[in-house]
Amino acid sequence: MDLLRGTLDLLVLRTLRGGPAHGYGIAKAIHAATDEVLDVEEGSMDPALYRMEKRGWIVADWGVTDTKRRAKFYELTPEGRTQLDAESSSWSEFSSAVGKVLESN
């Protein structure tokens, strides 16, 4: 299933709330958490991360993975946490509104 473009930020931020992760790890986590329904195309993950880093929602640092690979690890900033809260609540609002419409018939 294709990921709605605007929700990628929300999913990334939510994933990072569990602790630092690298881009590939985030993508894998989203894939697993949605019962393999959502598949983030790897090519769009990195630009999204770059964009969020620039907005100050996340910070990055180079580290080494379990498999001894060099990779960039991302961590949520306080601004990112605020953003996550705001986006989460507006998403809930939106999805419950959609739900109401769908159930109304």
């Binding site: 590939y24 990195d46 498999t67 690979r69 060099r70 960039k72």
Partner: peptide, 17 residues
């Protein structure tokens, strides 16, 4: 340069999997 590095890392990780 950084973005390139990161993408390469990304691919390597995926290949490992």
């Amino acid at each position: 340069h950084e973005i390139r590095e990161e993408m390469l890392a990304h691919i390597a990780l995926c290949a490992d999997d």
